[in-house]
Design a binder for these strands. Structure first.
Lengths: 337, 337
DNA sequence: TTGTAGGCGTTATCAA
DNA sequence: TTGATAACGCCTACAA
C-alpha cells in the first residue's frame, strides 16, 4: 500500500495540543521569547508527540527569505568547479542555508526561464562571469543578490571572487622563461573569458626576451579534447619547448597522448596547466600547474553572498585571491642551444 | 546606492493592470484555461510590463509541491559521487526540478536537524544507503519519497539503484585469477557497507583455487590515504601478487607511492580499483577498474524518484545496473612459479 | 506572559 | 468565459 504522505502537523495542531495560542508556539519554537516553564514544557511535549516541524514555505511567505542559495556552474565534472561547490557548500551548510545546484553543462546560453525561476527560490546566487552578458543583465534586474566567480569580471560594480588570471599566466610564463624555454605553445579555450587573460600573462612574461608564441583552440576544457589535439600540437614542424594548456584537464590529455606518440615529457617538451586539480599529482609525469584556489574561491564567494543577503553594505568589489605556482615533473630546464 | 530589492509584482498587480480577476491571471499563466484573445492580450501585456513571475513559495503552499528534489552525497570531490550528481542533475533539470545538493562530508552522522529541514523543502530525496540506520529510519517516517543509491540496500522494501558490489568484486577477482594471481591484498574502506561486498566477491572468485587473501583498512576513500598506506601494504614480508583497492582513488594513491618506493606496477604487483573514474585512464600505468556506473545510477535514481513523486506506483525494488570491468595497464599476467 | 487577528501570494472551488 | 472567495501555514504587530 503506497502510504499516502500523511498531512504534517501544523503550528495550529501544536497550539491546540499544548493548550496555547499559535503565536506562543511560533515564538517558542523560533526561540524569540521565553515562557513559563509550565507552558514551555507543554509545547515541547506537543511538538515531540506530533513530530512537528515548521513549513519553510509558509515561513518564507512572511519573512521573504527562502533559506536557499544557488550556485550555477558550468560542469561539475571539471574538478575546478567541483572544488568551488565543495567550498560554497561547506559555508552554506555552516550558515544553515540549503544549496541549490545548477549545472549549465557548459552551455553558452542557459535558458533564461529556468534562471528566472531559480531566482525566486533563493536568497542569492553564485554564478560564473562566463555567463553570457544578457543573462547577467537579467540577473541584475531581478534584484537577486549575486556574487560572481572568475576574474576578470566584466563589471566593476559587482561582487566577485577569483584569482587573477593574467597574473597566473605571468607566473607560469616566468617559470618557463627561467627554465630556458623560448618556443611556447598555448592550448587555449576560447569559450572561457579567462583563457585570453592567461595567454596575455604568459606572453608578457617573455617581454624583452626573444621568444616565439603560438596558440591553439580547444573546443572543450576536457582531457579528451587535449588528447584529440595532442598530435597536431606535438608533432608540428617546429615543435615547441613548452606547451601550456588552459587548464589541467587539457594538459593531462596532452600528457597521455604524448606517451602514445612516444614524446617524452618533460625532456622533449614541458607541459603545464592551470587549476592545480588533485589529479595532476597522480599523473605521470606529475603536472606543473598554477593553483587557482577553487575551494577557497567557493568559500569566499559564499561568505560574501551571505554578507550581501544579510544586508551588510559590503563594497561591490573584486576579491582577488592569490594564485600559486606548483612546480612538478612535467616542466624542466631546457639546455641552451 | 544599494537598490532595495524592489517588491516583486504579484498576481494581484497583474490582475489589476489587466482589468481581470486574479483567478483569471492564475489560470492563464499556468496554461490551465484559454480566454478570449482580448483578455489574453491584456494579461500578457501586463505580465510583460510588470515583469511578473509567480512566487514559487506561495504556489507550494497550495499545491504541496516544492519543485525541488534533494540529493545527499558523501563527498563531492570523489568522482564517483560527482558523476552521480551529474546524472541526477541532468534528469532533474529536464523535468524542471531544482536540485538541492547536500554534501555530508563523509560524516557518519549527518545531523538529523538539517535533514529534517531539508525534507520539508523537497518533493523527494536521493540518498546513500551508507547513511546510518537511524537517519534512514527517520527519513522513512517523514514520509518523504526516497530513492537510495548503492547496493546492497539494507532494506528490501525501498527504492534503490546501484551496481551489485558483490558481482563487481567477483568480476575483478576472476580477472586476477585468470591472470595467474594467487596472493591477493584488499585495501578496504570499512566506512562503506559496499566495501565488504566487494571483498566477498573478490574472495569467492578464488573458490577452489589455492590462494591467499589478506586485507587492510583505509580510514578514508581518498588517494592520500592510499599513499599513506602504500608502504605498509607494498613492502611487507610476503608481498602480494595483486592489490585491489575499495575504489580508484585509493588505488591511484597506491600507484603513485609505488613509484616512489621503486615498485613496478604491474610487473611486480598488479593494482586495481572500483568506480572507473575518468582519471584512472590518465594515471601511469593506467588503472584497471570496474565501472560502477555513477552517472547512469544518478540518472536512473532521479527518474525513479520523479516516478514516485508523481504517484506512479513503481514497485519498491532494487534496480541493479550492470557493472563492467575495464582492463588497463595496471594489471598483467603473472608467470606461474 | 500570553492571545487576537491580519496578511504573505497563490490556487481551487464554485458560482455567475 | 470569468470572478469571488476560501484555504495553505506561518509570523508579527498589537492588545490584553
Amino acid at each position: 500500500m503506497p502510504a499516502p504522505r500523511k498531512r504534517a502537523a501544523t503550528i495550529r495542531d501544536v497550539a491546540e495540543a499544548a493548550q496555547v495560542s499559535t503565536a506562543t508556539v511560533s515564538k517558542y519554537v523560533n526561540g524569540n521569547q521565553r515562557f513559563t516553564a509550565e507552558v514551555e514544557a507543554r509545547i515541547a511535549s506537543a511538538v515531540r508527540q506530533l513530530g512537528y516541524s515548521m513549513n519553510p514555505m509558509a515561513k518564507s511567505m512572511i519573512t521573504g527569505r527562502t533559506g536557499n542559495v544557488g550556485i550555477i556552474i558550468l560542469d561539475i565534472r571539471n574538478p575546478y568547479f567541483t572544488s568551488l561547490v565543495k567550498g560554497a557548500s561547506r559555508v552554506a551548510a555552516g550558515a544553515g542555508l540549503n544549496l541549490i545546484f545548477a549545472d549549465a553543462e557548459e552551455s553558452t546560453a542557459p535558458e533564461l526561464g529556468v534562471l528566472a525561476s531559480l531566482c525566486r527560490r533563493v536568497d542569492g546566487l553564485i554564478v560564473s562571469t562566463r555567463l553570457p552578458a544578457p543573462v547577467i543583465e537579467s540577473l541584475y534586474h531581478s534584484g537577486t543578490p549575486v556574487v560572481f566567480y572568475g576574474r576578470p569580471s566584466p563589471y566593476t560594480d559587482r561582487h566577485s571572487v577569483g584569482c587573477d588570471n593574467y597574473l597566473a599566466g605571468l607566473m607560469l610564463g616566468r617559470h618557463l622563461r627561467d627554465l630556458g624555454h623560448r618556443r611556447i605553445g598555448y592550448l587555449g579555450f576560447p569559450g572561457a573569458r579567462w583563457s585570453a587573460e592567461r595567454a596575455r600573462g604568459l606572453r608578457d612574461a617573455f617581454a624583452g626576451v626573444q621568444a616565439s608564441f603560438r596558440s591553439f583552440d580547444a573546443a572543450a576544457p576536457s582531457s579528451e579534447e587535449g588528447e584529440r589535439l595532442a598530435s597536431t600540437i606535438l608533432l608540428s614542424q617546429e615543435p615547441d619547448d613548452a606547451i601550456v594548456a588552459y587548464n589541467d584537464l587539457l594538459a593531462m590529455g596532452l600528457l597521455l597522448e604524448a606517451k602514445s606518440l612516444g614524446i617524452r615529457v618533460p625532456e622533449q617538451v614541458s607541459v603545464a596547466g592551470f587549476d592545480n586539480i588533485a589529479y595532476g599529482r597522480l599523473a605521470s609525469p606529475s603536472l606543473t600547474s598554477v593553483d587557482m584556489m577553487g575551494e577557497a574561491t567557493g568559500e569566499l564567494a559564499m561568505r560574501k553572498l551571505i554578507g550581501v543577503i544579510q544586508g551588510e553594505d559590503t563594497p561591490q568589489e573584486d576579491d582577488v585571491l592569490p594564485s600559486r605556482i606548483v612546480v612538478r615533473e612535467s616542466t624542466c630546464r631546457r639546455n641552451p642551444g
